[in-house]
Amino acid sequence: MSASVRWRDAALGGIGTLAVLALWEAAARWGGASPLVFPPPSTAVVGALERVPGDVLVGHVTISLQRIVLGFVAGATLGVVLAVAGGWYRILGNLMRPIVELLRPIPPLAWIPMAIVWFGLGESSKVFVIFLAAFFPVFTNAWKGVTGIDPVLLRAGQTMDLTGPALLFKVALPAAMPDIATGLRIGWGLSFGVLVAAELIAADSGMGYMIMNARQLADVGTIILGILMIGAANLVTDWAIGAVIRRRLGTWHPV
């Protein structure tokens, strides 16, 4: 893509974004609704930033990110390890398959009550729910990757004296990487959705808590700020993960 085309696309995107914001601003200013309930974006965000101290804001973001990273890393790691082991060693796969299939259709948020019963209201319950949200997409995709490898690649490896774990680590795992990467991205997105919900329902800190608390204070501006922050955090982290994946896999695999 040439630079001029990129600029044109960016300009068009900017125009579209500004149009939406302008529409919102206009509807809020002249639409007749109370600015307390439906504030224009300008006053909502600015007002909220005045009301919520910066360090409090940073504190909420930090604790949220901490939870999501902990849960995601645990879920993704276990997902990859179990899927690769189960996809490669048939007996293990046979044993874990029905259990996973049984648990997979359950939405991760449904575990919130049980997470509270098992782990209390502390950090572990939130991390556990995020862990579940990350685990299943990573597991499913990694499984698909390992079991769906083109057999000719495995045979080629065998003719080059690779057997057992060497074949797994040198051929099967790299070949499954694109699918694993897909699973990681889906898992990350899902973790974000789940994080907010977990914090809405059972937390006294984090971005989800911040907006739920703002509702009780009828502070719509802070709610809007929080929503935008959560969206931005998701967008930025997803983009970063995508960039890392592109760097690692983009050289040989169309991402």
């Binding site: 044109r8 696309d9 068009l12 995107g13 900017g14 125009i15 579209g16 974004t17 149009a19 939406v20 309930v37 439906f38 997105g189 974000f192 959705g193 994080l195 907010v196 919900a197 809405l200 971005m207 989800g208 907006i211 739920m212 703002a214 509702r215 009828a218 719509v220 709610i223 809007i224 929080g226 929503i227 935008l228 959560i230 969206g231 931005a232 998701n234 967008l235 997803d238």
Partner: peptide, 25 residues
């Protein structure tokens, strides 16, 4: 091209983060 940034952002907004706002509205 005009809607791409809006759609991308709206998709990254965690739906349940809108719950408090939905309750107010």
């Amino acid at each position: 091209r005009m809607t791409l940034p809006v759609i991308t952002f709206a998709r990254s907004v965690a739906t349940l983060s809108l719950l408090p706002l939905a309750i107010v509205w």
